[in-house]
Design a binder for these strands. Sequence first.
DNA 1: GCGACAG
DNA 2: ATCTTGTCGC
Length: 235
Amino acid sequence: MPRNLHDWNLTPTEAVAVQHRLRSKVRIKSLSRRVRFVGGADVSFNRFSDKLYTAIVVLDLSTLEVIESVRVRSVARFPYVPGLLSFREAPSVIAAWDHLQQKPDVLMLDGQGLAHPRRFGLACHLGVLLDTPTIGCAKSLLTGIHEELPTPAGSAVPLMDRDEQVGVALRTKRNVAPIYVSVGHLADLPSAVDLVRRTTGKYRQPEPTRQAHLLVNQLRREDLIRNQKQRNKQK
DNA sequence: GCGACAG
DNA sequence: ATCTTGTCGC
């Protein structure tokens, strides 16, 4: 498995080739093993900075309590290019993953899985590299279209790209914009949607990625304050 | 050629 | 993604 830094030092053209090569590794199946721990990952950064803040949280599915969290700082080695997000964010998520004591049974990512122009979004990529079940939970659309959603929370409509269904638009909160759920790896759409529903509370985003989001922003702001204090000392 | 474009 | 306070609505 390609997992060292060198493998991420690519040009955008090479990155696309990697996606074509790795997408055949994606396996779609029902989340077999009973899910006890659900993970969520997110990445944050400051404008004009290449420093990344990444977190993974692990929740107990039965209580939705956070049982473990890991936060890491890293440096981006790839720009944000639509369709190539994983080459920017995946290395730091893998670093955080390696520090986890309790690996979750499934990991939810802030981005697309199969709902991607080459059917290999962030969730697919990380699933394959980590050899772990993953689910994509994006807040906006990269590829595909869908019919209007009914108003009630829990409503879902197929997300279509041409003739194939690549995911669902899921309204997790009444009268609020949907999130886009798609399969990453070692999961199928029904079990993915089911898990998102079971981990969603009163907010738009499911708890795993929401908690990860809160953590990375906390870490990023801690660093901002720290840097400002350093500057004042030098003055 | 034009518009769209996860985070 | 991030820069940002109050504010309209369920």
